[in-house]
Simulated assay, not measured.
Amino acid sequence: MRKLSGDPDCKNGACPTLWGTADGEDYVVQGHVISDPEVLEQLGMPEGETAVMVPAAVLEGFFRARR
């Protein structure tokens, strides 16, 4: 795994982060698990999937770096 972008406001090292796999085929998003039943219902995810929330700055930092 390769760290691609992280929360710029992170103080403890265990913050929302965007990771890339070694082969560049997939991304892994580390974030805060969404447990609000209303939000999960809106997402309509199938069994076996979960959702995490990350600050916009994490993804914006990644896309800015790719330009």
Rank of each mutant, 00 (worst) to 15 (best):
H32W: 06
P16E: 15
P16R: 02
A56F: 10
G44I: 13
L59V: 13
C15A: 08
R64C: 03
E47A: 14
V54R: 00
R2P: 00
C10L: 15
M45G: 10
G48I: 06
F63M: 08
G44T: 13
G44L: 14
A65Q: 07
W19E: 05
R67P: 06
W19F: 11
G61F: 05
P37V: 02
P16V: 04
S35I: 11
S35V: 14
L4H: 04
V39S: 09
S5Q: 03
H32M: 04
M53Q: 06
D9E: 15
D23T: 06
D9R: 13
L43I: 03
A65I: 02
L4T: 06
V28F: 03
E47F: 07
R66K: 11
D36K: 05
H32I: 07
L40N: 12
E60R: 13
V54Q: 01
E47S: 14
L40P: 01
T50S: 13
G20H: 02
A65C: 02
E25R: 14
Q42T: 09
V58H: 01
R66E: 14
S35R: 14
T17N: 06
G44C: 14
N12R: 11
F62W: 10
A22N: 10
T21H: 10
E41T: 11
V29N: 00
G24A: 09
E25L: 11
D36E: 10
I34Q: 01
G20E: 15
V52K: 00
V39N: 01
S35L: 11
G31W: 00
L43H: 08
E60T: 12
R64W: 04
M53W: 02
R67V: 12
C15N: 08
D26V: 01
F63W: 07
S35A: 13
L4S: 10
